[in-house]
Computed example of a mutant assay.
Amino acid sequence: MSSLVEVARAAGVSVSTASRVLTGSSHPISAKTRARVIAVAEQLGYSPSALARALVSRNSRLLGVLVSDIVNPYFSVIARGVDDVASRAGYVTMLSNVDRRTATEINRVQTMRDYRAAGMIFAGSGYIDDPQAPELAKAVRQAQEQGIKVVSLTVRELGCPTITADSRTAAYDITDHLVSLGHRRIAFIEGPAGMIASQQRRDGFLACMRDADLAETAECHPGGFDYEAGHAATMRLIARPPLPDAILAANDEAAVGALSALRQAGIDVPGQISVAGMDDFRVAQFVGLTTVSLPLYEMGAMAARHIIDAPPGADNATTTVLSHRVIPRETTAWRSTGSTHP
């Protein structure tokens, strides 16, 4: 396939003139010159790139998804929902890892502006009292003024539509399930410190324990959203007996880490202690983990549909909350209130 330079040389015009003709620019060019450039391009088999067309038309079919951790299955499920909808509509999905850094998010917003993206989806949570939050909100506003549609999948002050699940209520409901099984001493392994999503899940756990008159037996332990964090937190619990009746981790990966630590220590799950998580990743199904299923795929799919279908200037204040459900599996069992652990 020939290059733009070769087309321009064969047509006897400048590269800029050839580019204007082949990308549909409204710049005034004579009909004769336009026809000659098109004929040469067809003869040489030249086709302008999608990016080149986007830079001229100020529009593209690129949809950017900003994720906190590209290897976390939470985001892979969301990304699949986005891409399934986007690809059917002729859009291309670009996944961008921001490592839970607001500065990186600001940089990625500028990148999406440079690429004339059709839309951006913020899939990850922000931080409580983030000093860079106003700068990020300003960058988002500038992108919107350029015509880029923006959607957030967590509650953040970004001035854009939000499509999310209620993490606080989900944590409340999975805790309530553990309480309904007779568990009274429940340990909660928290998510990453300072994150809004971590705080929401911790708040839901504590609210349920208060409502069940179990606030005095509620335990919160530092952790994270990965296997290693759940494993380390549980090893610390094992080293300081007695064990709680149940462990609830802030997500499934950390819960699997907790499950692994207990089994390595020869502690029977769920005979001696129950374990539960949140999100319902595929790994939860493989190990029989009790969890609460969040509509991650649906969140991604709905966000993509909004970007593709919503009219320009749509209400940016809307919040859509999708439902969740508790999924009981083999890692939890009923326990009488009088039970004790060695």
Rank of each mutant, 00 (worst) to 15 (best):
T154K: 10
R141T: 13
P131I: 11
V150M: 11
E145A: 12
T169P: 03
E157P: 15
K138Y: 08
D166W: 14
P161E: 03
L136A: 06
G147Y: 14
K138L: 11
Q146L: 09
K149A: 10
G159Y: 08
D166Y: 14
L158G: 05
G182Y: 07
R156T: 02
T154H: 11
V179H: 01
S152Q: 12
G147W: 11
A137K: 15
H183I: 01
L158P: 11
C160P: 10
Q142A: 12
I174M: 07
E157W: 11
T164K: 10
Y127K: 14
T175V: 01
A137D: 00
I128F: 13
I148T: 14
S180Y: 02
P161C: 01
D176P: 04
I174L: 04
V151L: 12
P161M: 05
K149N: 11
E135S: 07
D129W: 07
A137E: 08
V151H: 12
D173F: 00
T169H: 13
I163V: 13
D176E: 13
V150F: 07
D176G: 10
A170E: 05
G182Q: 06
Q144R: 15
T164Q: 01
A165R: 10
L178C: 00
S125K: 00
A123K: 02
V155H: 14
L178F: 00
R156N: 10
Y127F: 15
A143R: 11
A170C: 13
G124K: 12
A165M: 12
T175Y: 02
L181W: 03
K138W: 07
A139L: 09
F122D: 00
G182D: 00
D129T: 05
I163D: 09
L181D: 03
S152G: 07
S167A: 14
A139D: 11
Q142R: 15
T162C: 01
P161R: 03
Q142T: 14
G147R: 15
V150C: 06
Y172T: 00
A171E: 08
G124P: 09
C160A: 15
A123D: 11
